[in-house]
């Protein structure tokens, strides 16, 4: 047990220190990789809240990444090129507020409908709604349609300069730690216990008098907001925002991270994101057809290896 705790601690410390060391000796590539990793891990943490702890299998969480990224891109676009004055701003706090409100609202409205359904219906409907967001952004020419939106700026936050790659990384890393801690708190709270009760036996929770629908909806909205925040970071990190971020294979990759890392664990989403980003990097450097080994690996994981990486560690 002691060994596992120190192992997890070691991973976190290396994730913080190694990229900065690499950057200082001129290998900035690894810093970018680590930033991307942290951002994807935040989204996976958000998805884990409902998938892992709540048993709601959402196949549409890339939509929130996209919404968060466009919440940076659209105001910044107008700030740079004019039009829609009420929206045009470069203020990071306003970007975050817009992202939180929009992704929360999208989660609330789609959740109202999705959560009436269960099982396969839920998987497919979340997928369909994220595809709706995808086509929405594809159809808006002002924001670049499927070519995407390039913003030559980043959100302005007092005392922080996101143009500096180290600061960008530190912001992403500390956000990741914050959300891991927050989700940990939520799952230990009364609300979290009710949520996992619903996952294990929904009928019993109904007969115990809990409002199952409401609890699921709150968790769903909260999970969407976390992913929306990850989207704000992603938009700032890439400064290129396209509907491709919302594509359903992105949602599939997020699910892969959560499942591979081990559902309903604090560190699971991070492990999953580490494995995914490293795999993607290594495989795509070997061959442009990296989806082939990745897909085979995914099938192998599903067929032969259940419970994810965290289950190996806790044994």
């Amino acid at each position: 047990m002691q060994f596992i705790r120190s192992f997890k601690f070691l991973i976190l410390v290396s994730l913080l220190v190694l990229p900065i060391v690499f950057h200082q000796i001129g290998m900035s590539f690894y810093l970018d990789l680590a930033t991307r990793l942290c951002i994807l891990a935040i989204a996976a943490v958000g998805l884990n809240l409902i998938l892992g702890y709540g048993g709601m299998i959402s196949f549409g969480h890339a939509a929130y990444l996209g919404l968060g990224a466009y919440a940076v891109g659209i105001p910044a676009h107008h700030w740079l090129y004019g039009g829609l004055d009420f929206l045009a701003t470069n203020n990071g706090f306003i970007h975050i507020t817009i992202a939180v409100v929009i992704s929360g609202l999208f989660a609330f409205l789609t959740g109202l409908i999705c959560l009436k359904t269960k099982g396969v219906y839920f998987i497919m409907i979340t997928m369909a709604f994220s595809q709706m967001a995808y086509y929405l952004f594809v159809s808006i020419e002002e924001y670049g349609s499927d070519d995407g939106l390039v913003i030559n700026t980043r959100s302005e936050i007092p005392l922080i300069n996101l143009d500096d790659p180290i600061q960008m990384f530190l912001v992403s890393f500390s956000s990741l730690i914050f959300f891991m801690w927050l989700v940990h708190l939520i799952t230990k709270s009364n609300f979290g216990l009710i949520l996992s009760g619903i996952k294990d036996n929904e009928a019993r929770m109904v007969s115990l008098g809990y409002n199952v629908y409401l609890h699921k909806l709150i968790a769903f909205v909260f999970s969407g907001i976390i992913c929306g925040f990850a989207g704000v970071l992603l938009g700032n990190f890439t400064t290129f925002i396209s509907p491709e971020m919302i594509d359903w294979s992105r949602s599939g990759e997020l699910m892969f991270m959560v499942i591979l890392g081990g559902v309903a664990t604090v560190m699971g989403p991070l492990f999953g994101a580490i494995v995914f980003v490293i795999l993607e990097e290594v495989l795509s450097s070997i061959t442009i057809y990296w989806h082939l080994p990745f897909g085979l690996l995914l099938i192998a994981v599903v067929l032969f290896f259940r419970g994810g990486l965290s289950s190996l560690l806790s044994k």
């Binding site: 299998i57 196949f59 099982g119 396969v120 998987i123 294979s249 599939g252 699910m255 892969f256 499942i259 057809y289 989806h291 082939l292 990745f294 897909g295 085979l296 690996l297 995914l298 099938i299 994981v301 599903v302 067929l303």
Partner: peptide
């Protein structure tokens, strides 16, 4: 169903890449 979804998602990546090849 979660395993069905993940397994066949993997199959999509495999089939699409083979088609690409």
């Amino acid at each position: 169903h979660l395993d069905h979804v993940l397994g066949t998602f993997g199959a999509i990546l495999v089939i699409d890449t083979i088609a690409h090849l």
